[in-house]
Simulated scan of single mutants.
Amino acid sequence: MNEALATRLVPDRLWALVEPQLPEFRLRRQGGGTAPTDERAVFAAVVFVLTSGCPWRMLPPTFGVTVPTAHRRFMVWSRAGSWRRLHRVVAVQHRGDETMAWAYEIVTAATRRAEIRH
């Protein structure tokens, strides 16, 4: 994945807040498939889709994440309530810290889109 793109969409400070909010990745029971994908890369791909309006099927290969993986993880995170929890956590961090404004905007847009798409 293009590290500059990932860092821009999901800065280190945002990722530090995001990572604990995401359910632990588990291999699917049916087996097969590929090795687990980098969670930050998946999150960046999902954020891109949710904030850009890009259809899932048009997810650029730059992210290094397949469309089914990104969409599946988005659904798992949505069902687990990760978006709402993350929004609350980032909102608290954003208060009085203007450097978190971009992270707050990303998470707000993603949360709204997640609620619509889920």
Results as ranks from 00 to 15, higher is better:
Met1Cys: 10
Leu5Tyr: 01
Ala6Ile: 15
Thr7Phe: 00
Thr7Leu: 02
Arg8Glu: 10
Arg8Asp: 08
Leu9Gly: 00
Leu9His: 01
Pro11Ile: 01
Arg13Asn: 06
Ala16Val: 14
Ala16Thr: 11
Ala16Leu: 12
Leu17Arg: 04
Glu19Ser: 13
Glu19Trp: 05
Pro20His: 07
Pro20Phe: 02
Pro20Asp: 05
Gln21Ile: 03
Pro23Asn: 07
Phe25Tyr: 15
Phe25Ser: 10
Leu27Asp: 05
Arg29Gly: 12
Gly31Ile: 13
Gly31Trp: 09
Gly32Gln: 05
Gly33Pro: 06
Pro36Val: 15
Asp38Met: 10
Glu39Asp: 09
Val47Arg: 04
Val47Asp: 04
Leu50Glu: 03
Thr51Val: 14
Cys54Lys: 05
Pro55Val: 06
Arg57Pro: 02
Met58Phe: 08
Met58Gly: 03
Leu59Trp: 01
Pro60Gly: 07
Pro61Phe: 12
Thr62Glu: 10
Phe63Asn: 01
Gly64Leu: 05
Thr66Ser: 15
Val67Gln: 11
Val67Ser: 07
Pro68Glu: 07
Thr69Ile: 15
Arg72Gln: 12
Arg72Glu: 10
Phe74Glu: 02
Trp77Glu: 02
Ala80Arg: 07
Ala80Thr: 10
Gly81Asp: 09
Ser82Leu: 03
Trp83Cys: 00
Arg84Ile: 14
Arg84Tyr: 09
Arg85His: 13
Leu86Glu: 00
His87Arg: 12
Arg88Met: 14
Arg88Phe: 12
Val90Ala: 02
Val90Tyr: 00
Gln93Arg: 15
Gln93Val: 09
Arg95His: 12
Arg95Asp: 05
Arg95Ile: 12
Asp97Met: 08
Asp97Tyr: 05
Asp97Leu: 11
Met100Ala: 11
Tyr104Gln: 08
Tyr104Met: 12
Tyr104Lys: 11
Tyr104Pro: 03
Val107Gln: 01
Ala110His: 02
Arg112Cys: 14
Arg117Gly: 02
Arg117His: 06
His118Thr: 10
